[in-house]
């Protein structure tokens, strides 16, 4: 073991080493130090730095000048509403689609093909999806062409360079993410519970409503939070597929422009902090309401 342990101070001797080891600190524990330092320097420090920097406006003024500018300029503060208007409906839609599909897929024996197909858009990433949708949803693309051939529409729908282009890209990349998370929660529940319900005569809807839903509510809340946070930070597709000067000027575009077009890192940090706080606010709200939601179904199941 001598090889393992660092040479302790001579006076403290083995007693210090033993005392530390009994609390879980020995040479093996030290292996965590490089990664911890790395995360502190490159994750925690930049966050703290950005937080402080956001209170030191480039153009001078008092410490809140950046935040005051953000909340007084409609071009800036409206990005919050625009981003929420994209992220919230997309997240709800993805979750509403993912739940019934996950419940169906859980019964499948060979899920691997479907999960592999669904992993494709996540792996390819938002830039490629944006590039593909520009062609596919464009006025001459296969999507509009099919709808016109079927006779559903006369004129091609305008689906790119507006809200719906970004919406579609968030569904294509966001749905697989939401689905795979939901699936892992759904398959984690013991099917014996459902079988017990079925034995007592509960139909499919009752089994979902009174057995699965209460058990899955925490999982759904976390899935919602993770999917929402992803959608809220939409960037490449909002620029490429949307109208980055108009309805899809999302908050990450505002942060990017402040940093790399105005070279005002102080303002950019302020926008990034606001973005983080809005995300945090929604996540805390969802996780807090989970507690309220959970009690309802559990007591309702008695009746």
């Amino acid at each position: 073991m001598d090889v393992l342990a660092p040479t302790p101070a001579v006076i403290a001797g083995p007693s210090l080493r033993q005392r530390l080891a009994s609390r879980g600190f020995d040479a093996v524990t030290l292996l965590v130090v490089p990664a911890a330092i790395f995360s502190l320097v490159l994750f925690v420090y930049p966050f703290a730095f950005g937080f402080v920097l956001s209170f030191e406006p480039k153009a001078g003024g008092d410490w809140l000048a950046n935040y005051r500018r953000f909340f007084s300029d409609p071009f800036l503060y409206e990005t919050i509403a625009k981003t929420l208007w994209l992220a919230v409906p997309v997240t709800i839609l993805n979750l509403l689609l993912a739940v019934p599909i996950a419940f169906r897929v859980r019964l499948m024996r060979r899920q691997r093909l479907l999960t592999t197909i669904l992993v494709l858009p996540i792996t390819l990433g938002t830039v490629l999806v944006a590039e593909g949708l520009l062609n596919y949803l464009g006025p001459q693309g296969w999507f509009n062409r099919t709808l016109m051939t079927v006779g559903l529409i006369d004129q091609p729908l305008k689906l790119v360079h507006n809200y719906w282009g970004v919406f579609a890209s968030l569904v294509i990349t966001g749905f697989p993410f939401t689905f795979l998370l939901t699936l892992s929660y759904v398959t984690g529940i013991d099917p014996a519970l459902e079988q017990a319900g079925a034995t007592l005569g509960a139909n499919a809807w009752q089994r979902f409503r009174h057995i699965y839903l209460p058990l899955l509510m925490p999982g759904f809340a976390i899935t919602f939070c993770l999917s929402f946070v992803q959608a809220f930070s939409v960037f490449p597709s909002a620029v490429l597929l949307g109208a980055p000067a108009g309805p899809t000027r999302v908050i990450s575009i505002a942060a990017y422009q402040a940093a790399f077009e105005e070279y005002d890192y102080s303002m950019a940090s302020a926008v990034a902090m606001i973005m983080g706080f809005v995300q945090l606010g929604i996540v805390v709200a969802v996780l807090a309401s989970r507690g309220l939601f959970y009690r309802g179904p559990a007591s309702g199941a008695k009746g």
Partner: peptide
């Protein structure tokens, strides 16, 4: 892993 890259990317890029 939970915080989206663009949120921590801007302070990180500044540093």
């Amino acid at each position: 892993l939970l915080i989206p890259p663009i949120t921590f990317g801007i302070p990180l890029a500044t540093v």
